[in-house]
């Protein structure tokens, strides 16, 4: 496999900060376009939907880090926290835009939406589940929680599934875009199911290659 050029270690920290900075560009740009009247048609909805879509993209990206390492040996673990937190911030902005710009703080309407519209209930549930994950996305929490941190952060799977479902249920006709995210999330979750046996097989193979290199050559 062609090696991906490794980023020199001294750039690791800055690259994470660059990811945060880049990650906020879509929101900032859309906000600027919306505020200056340059978003077409229903500007508030456009903005709201863009934030939601990017939240989903960041959720998918967060879940992609592990398979990338498993399958391609690409260790981008250092970006996972940033991606997860970006997803959280986008979900939060998505909800804030809905609450302030779309519903203009009509609290009864918002409460009725959350209670009665399944897709909004699901979206809201995802936002609430993201809160403990965002609060524990720091080294101190990882040390403090130990194994429980891993268990807690498996909520990311439920959140991603909720996000994809929320997207599909919000539209009148489920189209290719919604299908794509359902497919990606399903694929990423399915990977978690086959991951352990795959890693075991990979370890064994590596062990065999190391101990009998000649056999491998002959077989090849």
């Amino acid at each position: 496999m062609a090696a991906i050029p490794l980023l020199p270690k001294r750039f690791h920290g800055p690259s994470v900060w660059a990811l945060y900075a880049l990650g906020f560009i879509p929101a900032a740009l859309a906000f600027y376009l919306g505020a200056t009247g340059q978003l077409p048609g229903n500007a508030v909805k456009e903005f709201e939907h863009l934030l939601g879509l990017w939240a989903l993209r960041f959720l998918v990206a967060t879940l992609t880090i592990t398979p990338l390492r498993d399958l391609f040996g690409l260790n981008w673990l250092r970006y996972r926290r940033a991606l997860g937190l970006l997803a959280f911030y986008y979900v939060l902005m998505h909800f804030t835009a809905y609450m302030l710009l779309d519903q203009m703080l009509r609290i009864p309407a918002i409460v009725a939406d959350i209670a009665r519209r399944p897709f909004i209930t699901i979206g809201m549930a995802a936002l609430i589940m993201l809160i403990p994950l965002a609060l524990t996305s720091n080294n101190w929490s990882i040390r403090k929680l130990g194994q429980r941190w891993n268990k807690l952060h498996r909520l990311a799977y439920v959140i991603a599934a909720a996000g994809a479902l929320h997207f599909a249920m919000a539209v009148k006709v489920v189209g290719p875009k919604q299908m794509l995210y359902i497919f990606l999330v399903a694929l990423l979750l399915a990977w978690r199911a086959v991951r352990t046996p795959f890693l075991r097989w990979k370890r064994q193979r590596t062990a065999v290659t190391r101990s009998h290199p000649a056999t491998q050559k002959a077989a090849g």
Binding site: G41, N42, D102, Q103, M104, A112, D113, R117, M169
Partner: peptide, 24 residues
Amino acid sequence: VDHPRWSQATENRIGEGGFFGSNR
């Protein structure tokens, strides 16, 4: 009579009110 997935009590008037104003 609400649509099962959203309320029909209010509407957004397209092209009005802009981003912050009240177009609902």
